[in-house]
Design a protein around this nucleic acid. Sequence first.
RNA 1: GCCGUCCUAGCUCAGUUGGUGGAGCACUCGGCUGUUAACCGAGCGGUCGCCGGUUCGAGUCCGGCGGACGGCGCCA
Length: 436
Amino acid sequence: MSEVRWKKIEEILDEKRTDETVHLHGWIYRTRSSGNIAFTVIRDVTGTIQATVKKGNLPDNEFEDAKKALIESSVELKGIVKEDKRAPEGYELQVKGFNVVNFAEPFPIVKDQSPEFLLDQRHLWIRSQKLTSILKIRSTAVGAIHKFFRDRGYFEFDAPILQPNQCEGGSTLFEVKYYDNKTYLSQTWQLYAEAAVFSLEKIYNMGPTFRAERSKTSRHLSEFWMAEMEAAWMDLHNVTEIAKEEVKFILSEVLKHNKRELNLLKQDINKLQHIAESEFSTITYTKALEILNEKENMNVQWGKDLRTIEENKLMNHFDTPIVVTNYPLEIMAFYKPKDPDDPKTALCFDMIAPGEYGEIVGGSQRNLDVEDMEKKLKESGENIENYEWYFDLRRYGSVPHSGYGLGVERVVAWICGIDNIKDAIPFPRTILRFRP
RNA sequence: GCCGUCCUAGCUCAGUUGGUGGAGCACUCGGCUGUUAACCGAGCGGUCGCCGGUUCGAGUCCGGCGGACGGCGCCA
């Protein structure tokens, strides 16, 4: 086995070496047989190719195995590369040897499937071209995020997953038994990041985040990956510009490495290319309301958060992601500070994606006013003693600092153009599903 | 938390005014030397989500329960 040089399907199709004998291993993707000829389409990680098995070209028992092997059987082939217009990829293998490594049982996923069934069979559906393409793009996106920050002098910094505090509101925490106490699964890395920027100054992280929101939408997961950054000496404007650059960088890396996958997902590459090269607009919440009320005939009261319908209507007016800043102070979390130039609003922002993918980034400058934060935490019923360590950060050499979190699955879903965020993560966890 | 849709073969679905449960796909067997999620013939395959009610008779009508999925709110 060690002496065999296994070719990948992509190599065979790119090299176009007619009459070359190659060894190939993979899985049966489609199979058809007709008397003394059988067609098996083989897949590997790089693509698919038709392998044509004719009786007489190989030992009879191997021919019978080729006819008998069901979809998803794993195989090792020896064959001769031939150009043939009748083959789906233009080239095919004339098979000389057909070794079935494992005869698959009847594969449960066939022509017609429902979304529920595919979620039940996720461990098998993950082999599909669709999910394989998305997972390759996700891998590119994750690599791009690391590269983006490291190239700019950021340190990777890890916060605990088990945390004693709340941050985004108590009802959305997953409680975990911790010896004789209880802790919560991390909702954000932010509070610990704020401790670290006083030494490392510029940091980032990407990791799992847990929100027990009772959301049943195509945009929500209970466990998702968030890519966060935090930096000392930066204000709101600085970090919104970094967020725009980051999203554009992720997109351009995917365009560079995953054209084949984007095509399989039927995404418009020119449109994505245009977005990667465009400036993203920044508008204020107040300006967003003007657009909604004047151009969309809506009647949104100042002070209400933008809901899904408002965000979707707003995005009718933009073909790239946009940044919306200065949401009403009252409806914002305790760590978002008042804007001194517009005291009814907070120094915060969301980035909203085109289409109906919603908020892909959320962030803010950080509140430095301990009294103000104590007041807000008390109002929302929290025990401020849990936050004393956090307030200490304001007592010993505090500086202006800002940060944001980017929803990895939302960005991947948007770039891939998929209709449900569940397909942007291998094994999705939602309020209604946590297996397989 | 609120609202909606659905539950019949392994999968996707039909099933009329209540009257002996169907199709396609998958699988098995047979046929076919160029198929394109092939085609032709045959076969295998059912606790109609569960419990109760009405009725001579319920997949179908009524009540309750359970499960799945989606929308809103909230958020990445």
